[in-house]
Design a protein around this nucleic acid. Sequence first.
RNA 1: GGCGAGUUACCCAAGCGGCCAAAGGGAUCUGACUGUAACUCAGCUGUGUUACCACUUCGGGGGUUCGAAUCCCUCACUCGCCA
Length: 439
Amino acid sequence: MSDLTDEAATPVVPRNDATFESLWDELVWRGLIHVSTDAEALRELLQGDPITYYCGFDPTAPSLHLGNLVQLLFMRRLQLAGHRPLGLVGGSTGLVGDPRPTAERTLNTKETVAEWVGYLGAQIQRFLSAEGSNGVRMVNNLDWTAPLSAIDFLRDVGKYYRVGTMLKKDAVSARLNSEAGISYTEFSYQLLQGLDYLELYRQYDCVLQSGGSDQWGNLTSGTDLIHRAEGVRVHAIGTPLITNSDGTKFGKSEGNAIWLDPDLVSPYGFYQFWVNTEDADVVARLKVFTFLSRAEIERIAELVVREPFRREGQKRLAFEVTSTVHGVEATRAAIAASQALFGQGDLARLDAATLDSALAALPRAIGSLGMPLTQLLVDAGLTKSLGESRRAIEQGGVYLNNVTVGSADAVLTADAILVGVGAVLRRGKRTLAAVTLAD
RNA sequence: GGCGAGUUACCCAAGCGGCCAAAGGGAUCUGACUGUAACUCAGCUGUGUUACCACUUCGGGGGUUCGAAUCCCUCACUCGCCA
């Protein structure tokens, strides 16, 4: 494999693997089909003339995250096959809240939701081509639900729904069996999502909706509604929820979500997340999150088994996914920073430019000479309190420029500032922060 | 509607007047090992400038007491049993 830090190294061009008999077969091979409506019919449908399909994203946060990335790349694969994507942002569904199995959601203000709708819309468009006859079209479900009166909604949509069926949906029954119960608001969610599909079917002849398998109840809400209202069978595909082989939640780093917004998770942090993928998970991730061909992935799979310590799979995965989300430039910078910071080498020997860009990738604390390291650790977000800082140092878990800090009383000194740029503060093996001087 | 049980730190769960910042387990975090791993072993885990010192904490509020997570009253919520 070529060196990924090489300027010549470029991410693979997104395309579907022509060695598969059909797009459907590739999707199955990649493990992207967890549940669907009629598989045979879908295989045919996806092989035929372009169809219109959609996937919705609710504004529950100011950015999409890795779970959403599965959907976006799934959509991209269909688009590459010539199909027409509709990117839906949930301006109205975001106001209501999809019932989570555990507890009622806190409603966000309309202003907040509207703001997030804008952010998500922009993110979605970065992953789907706007070019050609099958360029992505963005829609917002608030456009057709806002003008709808409660009476019309109940008469035109509600009449098609049986409460018995609604109660059987997993998300709803889980809540009914829990202490949390469920509000009428969230109970109504499936009607709204069903209406979306119906609306898109009528407006754009949309005949396929994809979503996470946990959304299956909501996906079928739409297919059932269209069947009742229009007498037509349309389709739905539920992609698997990505899980880690060790049972922990995928897409979280120390409990925090991995967001796609570089302001929330830096490209460096994003790259690091992927580089730290477990051996047991690498191949499955490559299939889902990259456009590498089957042959290439099978080749890497062998390397992962034969030479796991080289971590070629992780590096390739991190390179590809980070490039897809943040671009090649940012990815190269992230790799360079990773090498500078994790290399066994002496940080003091780095040149100013390399060090500066490496530090730029890290969370930052502004310090001044004489400032206690315990405070800098807190400022950098490496610890939560001075006590924790002290404890970490006493356990030998804190490093300044790769040198263990011996005393909890240590302060920032002038010689710690490398080539006039700053210092590298590290907690544990791989949690890093930059320290720069205030001036 | 009646009777009974319960609400403890990130989660589960002991404690039932002082020795309780609060057992134990899980989880996180740190160290050794290592591949920036996994497994295993060890340690930390309320806050405070370095502390057997102070402060905040045991559902909310109010009492009793030299002293309460522990006793009393009250409010809220949860869970059983009987109507």
